[in-house]
């Protein structure tokens, strides 16, 4: 069973990492989503126990550990919040930049770099 969880986690992580390397920001978000699902699967896989819910258990009966489930649930809620946030952010990026491609975002950085170079030029002139 643990093998199955490990495989599932590996596949999730692999697909997530692949998507992360894409240019399209929506795919990057999908990649992050998949990777956070991988963490959930790992939590469940690492703490899996079988048995009844630990409420009023008859003596001697196996109890399932509630903690990994609580962890997974909490991580799920947090994952939902962060994905919602990322989507809102990408939406805003699309509105401002009129594109969802990563390279176009970097164009602004190149402009900034050119400004810095001009400033260095000014420094050199001042020094000489």
């Amino acid at each position: 069973m643990i093998l199955a969880f490990a495989l599932a986690a590996a596949v999730l992580f692999g697909s997530g990492a692949y998507l992360l390397l894409k240019r399209d920001l929506v795919r990057v978000v999908a990649g992050i989503m998949l990777i956070s699902q991988c963490a959930l699967v790992t939590i469940i896989g690492s703490g899996l126990t079988r048995g009844r819910a630990p409420i009023a258990v008859p003596a001697g009966q196996a109890v399932s550990d509630p903690l990994p489930q609580a962890l997974a649930l909490t991580a799920l809620v947090i994952g939902l919040a962060t994905v919602a946030l990322l989507l809102a952010l990408v939406h805003r990026v699309v509105m401002v930049f009129r594109t969802a491609e990563r390279d176009d975002l970097a164009a602004g950085e190149a402009e900034h770099e050119a400004g810095l170079e001009a400033q260095r030029q000014a420094d050199r002139e001042e020094a000489s």
Partner: peptide, 14 residues
């Protein structure tokens, strides 16, 4: 979130 994604204005993230 849905309101912002459905809307046309892009200002004001959640």
């Amino acid at each position: 979130l849905l309101h912002h994604l459905a809307g046309r204005d892009g200002r004001d993230g959640s």
